[in-house]
Amino acid sequence: MTEYKLVVVGAGGVGKSALTIQLIQNHFVDEYDPTIEDSYRKQVVIDGETCLLDILDTAGQEEYSAMRDQYMRTGEGFLCVFAINNTKSFEDIHHYREQIKRVKDSEDVPMVLVGNKCDLPSRTVDTKQAQDLARSYGIPFIETSAKTRQGVDDAFYTLVREIRKHKEKMSKDGKKKKKKSKTKCVIM
């Protein structure tokens, strides 16, 4: 069974824990209790493949930012979460993405942009803004509501699919490099 290491990042209060708990335990946590770091595991079937999701729910508070490099190193894919009623959390996505790329030393890291709290009427981040940002990053965008469960499975499952595509691409690139290195030079 394939294991996928997913990391949920975003500013404090955007609903990272609520999304994760909704996926794992099928219930909505409405009281806000700032996370330092929590880890969850769940076995699911995605596109006919049974897999184990190892999900790291991270601290959004700035005082825990020193811990970010460590979990970013171990993560295979990242859910970059903002709240649709919090423009600052949307603007912060850029910083999370840049930090992930720096730590992973790669421009090509599996990510999904997630606009959470889409059940709320007080939207300050337009869907088109988020779609445009995701398009500019070359990553999928999904709106979710941890409260109603809308888009929750889709967000995590899409990230797994992005990781699969990335692994497939990397193995193809690896095979191309191996083929090239088999060419021999004969000096007579």
Rank of each mutant, 00 (worst) to 15 (best):
T2V: 09
T2S: 12
T2W: 11
T2I: 11
T2L: 10
E3K: 13
Y4P: 15
Y4W: 05
K5C: 08
K5P: 06
L6G: 03
V7Q: 05
V7L: 02
V8E: 03
G10P: 14
G10E: 02
G10W: 03
G12R: 02
G12K: 05
G12E: 15
V14R: 12
V14A: 13
G15Y: 02
G15E: 02
K16P: 15
K16T: 01
K16C: 03
S17I: 01
A18Y: 01
L19K: 11
T20W: 00
T20Q: 00
T20E: 01
Q22L: 02
Q22T: 14
L23Q: 14
I24F: 15
I24N: 02
Q25S: 15
Q25N: 15
Q25G: 15
Q25V: 15
H27M: 15
H27A: 15
F28P: 01
F28A: 00
F28V: 01
V29S: 02
V29W: 13
V29Q: 04
D30S: 05
E31I: 04
Y32K: 00
Y32N: 01
P34Y: 01
T35P: 00
I36F: 01
E37K: 15
E37Q: 15
E37W: 11
E37I: 09
D38W: 00
D38V: 01
D38N: 01
S39W: 02
S39N: 09
S39T: 10
Y40R: 00
Y40C: 00
R41T: 04
R41L: 08
R41S: 04
K42C: 06
K42F: 11
K42Q: 08
Q43I: 06
V44H: 07
V44K: 10
V44W: 12
V44R: 13
V44T: 07
I46T: 13
D47H: 11
D47A: 10
D47P: 06
G48E: 10
T50H: 06
T50S: 10
C51Q: 14
C51G: 08
C51I: 13
L52V: 14
L52P: 14
L52K: 14
L52M: 13
L53T: 07
L53Q: 04
L53F: 10
L53P: 03
L53V: 12
D54S: 14
D54C: 11
I55H: 02
I55Y: 01
I55M: 14
L56P: 00
L56D: 06
L56W: 03
D57R: 00
D57G: 00
T58W: 00
T58N: 00
A59F: 00
Q61F: 03
Q61T: 09
E62Y: 03
E62N: 04
E63A: 03
E63V: 02
E63C: 04
E63R: 02
E63M: 03
Y64M: 01
Y64V: 01
Y64A: 01
S65F: 12
S65D: 03
A66V: 07
A66K: 07
M67H: 03
M67D: 02
R68N: 02
R68C: 02
D69Y: 07
D69I: 02
D69M: 06
D69G: 09
Q70R: 15
Q70W: 03
Y71P: 15
Y71V: 05
Y71S: 14
Y71D: 12
M72I: 03
M72K: 15
M72Q: 07
M72N: 04
R73D: 05
T74E: 11
T74K: 15
G75K: 02
E76P: 13
G77H: 01
G77P: 03
G77I: 09
G77Q: 02
F78C: 01
L79Q: 15
L79N: 03
L79G: 01
C80M: 09
C80L: 10
V81I: 05
V81M: 07
F82H: 09
A83K: 08
A83Y: 01
I84S: 13
I84L: 13
I84C: 12
I84K: 13
K88L: 10
K88Q: 14
K88E: 08
K88G: 08
F90W: 11
E91D: 07
E91V: 04
D92G: 04
I93T: 10
H94I: 15
H95V: 11
H95N: 12
R97Y: 11
R97G: 08
E98C: 05
Q99S: 13
Q99Y: 04
I100G: 02
I100E: 09
K101Y: 15
R102P: 04
V103C: 12
V103I: 10
V103T: 15
V103G: 06
K104T: 15
D105G: 12
D105N: 03
D105W: 03
S106V: 12
S106F: 06
S106C: 12
E107M: 15
E107V: 08
E107R: 08
E107W: 07
E107N: 11
E107H: 06
D108N: 09
D108Y: 07
V109Q: 08
V109D: 03
P110I: 04
M111R: 02
V112N: 01
V112C: 09
V112P: 03
V112T: 10
V114M: 06
V114K: 02
G115A: 13
G115I: 13
N116H: 10
N116E: 10
N116Y: 02
K117D: 13
C118P: 15
C118R: 10
C118T: 11
C118K: 07
D119I: 06
D119V: 03
D119A: 15
L120E: 11
P121N: 12
P121A: 11
S122C: 08
S122F: 07
R123G: 12
T124E: 10
T124C: 10
T124H: 08
T124M: 08
V125S: 09
D126P: 09
D126H: 06
D126R: 06
T127I: 06
T127R: 06
T127K: 07
T127F: 04
T127W: 05
K128V: 06
Q129R: 08
Q129W: 12
A130R: 14
A130K: 07
A130G: 06
Q131R: 09
Q131W: 09
Q131N: 09
L133Y: 14
L133Q: 08
R135Y: 14
R135N: 09
S136C: 08
Y137K: 11
Y137H: 10
Y137Q: 09
G138V: 13
I139R: 05
I139Y: 12
P140A: 04
F141I: 04
S145Y: 07
S145V: 02
A146G: 06
A146S: 03
R149K: 04
R149G: 03
Q150L: 09
G151N: 15
V152T: 07
V152F: 08
D154I: 06
D154K: 06
D154S: 06
D154M: 06
A155E: 06
A155Y: 07
A155C: 13
F156M: 05
T158N: 06
T158I: 09
L159M: 08
L159E: 05
L159W: 03
L159F: 02
V160R: 09
V160C: 14
R161E: 03
E162Q: 07
E162P: 02
I163F: 11
R164G: 09
K165D: 05
H166V: 07
K167I: 04
E168V: 06
K172F: 11
K172N: 10
K172W: 04
D173V: 06
D173A: 12
G174W: 03
G174R: 15
G174D: 05
K175A: 02
K175R: 12
K175C: 08
K175P: 03
K176E: 04
K176A: 15
K177W: 05
K177V: 05
K177P: 15
K178N: 07
K180G: 05
K180M: 06
K180W: 13
S181Y: 12
S181W: 04
T183A: 07
T183S: 06
C185V: 12
C185I: 05
V186Y: 09
V186M: 14
V186S: 15
M188C: 06
M188E: 15
